[in-house]
């Protein structure tokens, strides 16, 4: 049975079409404009692109779940930083030093736990107070970032563990560790959102909250679980990234929430909730990373890159609005 109509296919395929367009453009433009001799579509370059997409990508996948549910989470950048601090600092905690390299899984566990707890706090507040998630996580963003600074002032927190670096830089079947994590998370969340009762209820809540309540769905617990998921993923993102770099600045992860939201929106998830796809968000993440890399390849500087991405985001949303505008007779706003 074919349940997709052309319109849906167009919308779901749009982000991948956009990616192909980018690839073609940068390959052609790269021939004339690039200072380097390498082709843009080089295999190593593409593998690197996946790896670099991972930190924001993992968060963006979680953000998709939150936004499908009708919420938003602005605190992910701060959770990311705080988890990173816990990860690196815990490796030198005296009572863990006896563990040798076994400190690694313990530190990972602590970092992930931190993420889950912080997410749970957000979720619990949203559930119990009924305050809009935007406000709650805006507060959390400031608060959690404050905790990061309280930890070590303006100083970076560093700990380099070579076993860890080796693991993070490993390539399995050609893909980097970080890429595997990104793909793994995508598959897991895709299953969650399409195959489980929790996932389908999350869609229903985001789509028509009143209908969900009327049908007896317990909205609060579902939202809390989703906030815990994104907390966990922010922690996982930190684990993946800082296992390799080994040093966290107190300002790391700022604006990650906005990049994540950008990727989610580019992927076609509705800001109002109820509609969206994990796979499309993956496309959104790759599209942004391609733009950054591609513009760098043809010699544009960071400021230009941001300007271009911003313009594209607005253009995409405008197009989406035009395509989705319902029949005539709609109230003007």
């Amino acid at each position: 049975m074919n349940t997709l109509n052309t319109n849906d296919l167009l919308k779901q395929g749009a982000i991948w079409g956009f990616i192909v367009l980018e690839l073609v453009f940068f390959t052609v433009a790269g021939k004339y404009l690039s200072l380097s001799q390498n082709a843009f579509m080089d295999l190593d370059n593409m593998l690197l692109l996946f790896k670099q997409s991972a930190p924001i990508g993992i968060i963006a996948l979680g953000m998709t779940v939150i936004m499908i549910n009708g919420n938003i989470d602005l605190s992910v950048g701060a959770i990311f930083a705080l988890c990173a601090v816990v990860l690196l600092d815990s490796m030198s905690w005296p009572f863990l030093t006896g563990l040798g390299d076994w400190v690694i899984p313990v530190s990972w566990g602590l970092a992930l736990l931190t993420g889950v707890v912080l997410g749970a706090i957000n979720g619990l507040i949203v559930w119990k107070t009924g305050v809009d998630a935007f406000i709650v996580t805006l507060g959390a963003m400031l608060g959690y970032r404050g905790l990061v600074f309280m930890f070590n002032g303006e100083q970076p927190t560093s700990h380099l563990n070579w076993t860890l670096v080796d693991f993070a830089e490993a390539q399995f079947l050609g893909l980097h560790t970080a890429t595997w994590f990104l793909l793994g998370v995508a598959v897991a969340l895709w299953l969650l959102m399409t195959r489980t009762v929790h996932g389908r209820n999350a869609y229903a809540i985001g789509d028509n909250r009143e209908a969900a309540v009327n049908a007896g769905i317990r909205v609060g617990p579902h939202m809390m679980i989703n906030f815990m998921i994104i907390g966990f993923l922010a922690g996982l993102s930190a684990v993946v990234f800082y296992s390799e770099s080994g040093s966290v600045n107190p300002n790391d992860g700022s604006l990650y929430e906005l990049w994540a939201i950008t990727a989610v929106v580019l992927g076609g998830t509705k800001l109002t909730g109820g509609s969206g796809s994990i796979i499309s968000t993956l496309g959104g993440v790759l599209a942004i990373q391609l733009l950054r890399k591609g513009l760098g390849h043809i010699g544009a500087d960071t400021e230009t890159v941001n300007l271009v991405i911003g313009s594209i985001l607005i253009a995409v949303l405008f197009l989406d609005r035009q395509l989705n505008r319902k029949a005539k007779g709609e109230l003007r706003t």
Binding site: V197, H198, R200, A204, D207, N208, I217, G274
Partner: peptide
Amino acid sequence: LSLAEELSVAENVYLGELPRKSFGRV
């Protein structure tokens, strides 16, 4: 109407009472 428009007919009919398999799968 008290329906979730983005979901399928079946999901709307059994909204809140989706039949489950193991691990909370639909």
